[in-house]
C-alpha cells in the first residue's frame, strides 16, 4: 500500500501542478494584450451597441478582481474567486453569472456525450470482436474495415454537416419529414414539466447529433478491438482452450474477448474523461444547447469572461478525470507499475 500511497501523492502533485499551470495560462493570455482588459470589454460592449449595465459591470469587476491594482494582486484575487466557484459575469447577458450559464448547459453536453460514447464503444467493440475472431480475410471483414477507416478519418463535425444535409434537409424535401435541425427540444415543451413527451422530444432532437458522434468514433473502437482480437487469437491459452474441447462460443467470449477488452477499457476511460469538451462542434452545427453552443455564442458576442469560463471548466474537468483514471487504473490492471515514470 505504501507504493500506492506514494503513487497517489505523485499523481495529486501532478494534478495540482497542471491545474495551476492551466489557470495561470488562462489568466495571462488576456493580459498579454496591451491595455486594460476592462477597457477592452467596454469597447467590445459599445461595439455590440449595449450600454445597459456596462458601468455596473465594470465596477463589479474592479471590486472583485482588483483590476485597478497590480498584476500580482489581480492574480491572487483571480485564483481566490476561482476557488469559490466565481467565474465572473457574462457580458452578453450581464446580470447572469458565467457559472450559472455553464451549469445550465453542461447537463446537455454530459448527457449527449456520455450516452453516445458508451453506445459507440459497445457497438464498435462487439463488431470488432466478432469480425476479428472470424478472421480478417473475409469480404465482409474487408468491407467493414474500409468503412470503419473512412468513418475514423472523417472528423465528426464534417460528418455532422453531411447528416444535417441528408437527414434533416433532404429528407424533408423529398418525403416531407425529417429529423430536427436545431435545438435540444421543441421550445415550449419544457413548460409542461418533466413528462414522457418531453423525454421523447429530447431523444428525438438528439438523434442526429448523437449519430454524428457515434458513427465517427465507432471506427476507432472497431479497428482497435479487431486488431486486439486477432493478436489474442494467436495466444497459447486459446490453443489450450481449444485442446480442452471447449465450444467456440465459450473460447471467444470467455477467453479471447475478456483478454482483448482491457486496452478498450482504458480507451473508454480516456474518452469519457473528455466528454465535457468532446464534441463542441457537433453542438455548434446542430445548435444543441450544450457547452459547444454556449461557447460558440460567447465567441459570436465577444463575451470574453464566458469564453474564459467555458475553457477553464473544460480544462479542469479533463485534468480531474485524468487524475481519477490514474487512481483507478492500477487497481484494475495490476500489470501497471506505479511509482515509476517511464
Amino acid at each position: 500500500m505504501t507504493t500506492y500511497a506514494r503513487y497517489l501523492l505523485g499523481r495529486a502533485i501532478t494534478l495540482a501542478f497542471s491545474v495551476w499551470i492551466a489557470i495561470s495560462i488562462v489568466f495571462i493570455i488576456p493580459r498579454l494584450v496591451p491595455g486594460n482588459p476592462m477597457d477592452a470589454i467596454l469597447m467590445k460592449m459599445s461595439q455590440m451597441g449595449a450600454s445597459v449595465g456596462a458601468q455596473e459591470l465594470v465596477e463589479e469587476y474592479k471590486k472583485i478582481f482588483g483590476l485597478d491594482k497590480d498584476l500580482f494582486t489581480q492574480y491572487i484575487s483571480f485564483i481566490k474567486e476561482l476557488l469559490r466557484g466565481n467565474l465572473g459575469y457574462s457580458i452578453g447577458s450581464f446580470p447572469t453569472t458565467v457559472a450559472e450559464l455553464i451549469s445550465r448547459s453542461i447537463p446537455w453536453t454530459i448527457g449527449l456525450l456520455s450516452v453516445t460514447t458508451i453506445l459507440s464503444w459497445i457497438i464498435g467493440t462487439i463488431l470488432g470482436a466478432l469480425i476479428g475472431w472470424k478472421g480478417e480475410h473475409t469480404i465482409l471483414s474487408r468491407l467493414f474495415s474500409y468503412f470503419a477507416l473512412l468513418l475514423y478519418v472523417i472528423p465528426y463535425y464534417i460528418f455532422a454537416i453531411l447528416l444535417l444535409f441528408f437527414f434533416s434537409y433532404y429528407l424533408r424535401q423529398t418525403l416531407g419529414f425529417g429529423f430536427p435541425s436545431s435545438g435540444g427540444y421543441t421550445p415550449g415543451i419544457e413548460l409542461k414539466g418533466f413528462t414522457l413527451e418531453y423525454v421523447l422530444n429530447i431523444i428525438w432532437h438528439s438523434i442526429l447529433p448523437a449519430l454524428s458522434i457515434i458513427l465517427t468514433s465507432l471506427g476507432w473502437w472497431y479497428l482497435s478491438m479487431r486488431s486486439m482480437m486477432t493478436t489474442v487469437k494467436g495466444e497459447d491459452y486459446i490453443l489450450m482452450a481449444e485442446a480442452k474441447g471447449l465450444s467456440e462460443k465459450t473460447i471467444m467470449w470467455k477467453y479471447a474477448f475478456r483478454n482483448a477488452i482491457l486496452p478498450q477499457t482504458t480507451g473508454l476511460a480516456i474518452a469519457l474523461s473528455r466528454i465535457v469538451g468532446g464534441a463542441l462542434l457537433t453542438e455548434v452545427i446542430f445548435a444543441y444547447p450544450g457547452m459547444g453552443w454556449l461557447l460558440y455564442n460567447a465567441i459570436k458576442s465577444l463575451d470574453y469572461p464566458l469564453i474564459q469560463g467555458c475553457v477553464l471548466l473544460i480544462i479542469l474537468s479533463v485534468a480531474l478525470a485524468n487524475f481519477i483514471i490514474d487512481l483507478v487504473y492500477p487497481l484494475i490492471d495490476p500489470r501497471i507499475r506505479y511509482g515509476e515514470e517511464t
Binding site: 501532478t14 501542478f17 497542471s18 499551470i21 492551466a22 495560462i25 488562462v26 493570455i29 488576456p30 494584450v33 473528455r274 469538451g277 468532446g278 463542441l280 461557447l295 465567441i299 465577444l302 470574453y304 469564453i307 474564459q308 475553457v311 473544460i314 480544462i315 479533463v318 485534468a319 485524468n322
Partner: peptide, 24 residues
C-alpha cells in the same frame, strides 16, 4: 515534462479558442 503533460492532456482546441478569440 510537466508542461508537455499539460499541453497533451488539455484538448488543444481550447487554448487556441482563448487566443484566437482575443485577437479575433
Amino acid at each position: 515534462n510537466v508542461i508537455v503533460d499539460v499541453f497533451l492532456s488539455v484538448p488543444s482546441l481550447l487554448f487556441l479558442i482563448l487566443i484566437a478569440a482575443l485577437i479575433s
